[in-house]
């Protein structure tokens, strides 16, 4: 476990920088994480993706399939990768405050 400090605020994160306690998450945390990992300012499209991931996770305890993100938000697949340079898992899921998904991500 490590402590991540962004703009004076500290967060307990795992080795990959995912929040250890996802309950700590709020929109301000998302903005701080996005700034820190190179995603930059969050636009409306970013928020649509983040909120979709977050609500799916709150319901099922899992990250959604990228397909359902695209279908629910109407954002094209290729655009997801441009919006989140770190990708849907290490980028979007991390900003949405999820724990790191298992597997090759």
């Amino acid at each position: 476990m490590a402590i991540l400090e962004i703009e004076g605020k500290t967060f307990e994160v795992d080795g990959d920088g995912f929040l250890v306690n996802p309950k700590e998450w709020n929109e301000e945390v998302a903005q701080l994480f996005a700034k820190q990992d190179g995603t930059g300012e969050l636009t409306e499209k970013h928020w649509a993706v983040i909120k979709n991931i977050r609500s799916h996770w709150e319901k099922t305890d899992m990250a959604p399939m990228v397909r359902s993100i695209c279908q629910d938000t109407g954002i094209r697949l290729r655009e997801i990768y441009t919006l989140f340079p770190q990708g849907p898992a290490r980028g979007a899921c991390k900003i949405a405050g999820l724990p790191k998904p298992d597997g090759c991500v």
């Binding site: 898992a89 597997g103 991500v105």
Partner: peptide
């Protein structure tokens, strides 16, 4: 599995 999940 990362293909269907995140990188199809």
């Amino acid at each position: 599995p990362r293909e269907p999940k995140f990188f199809p």
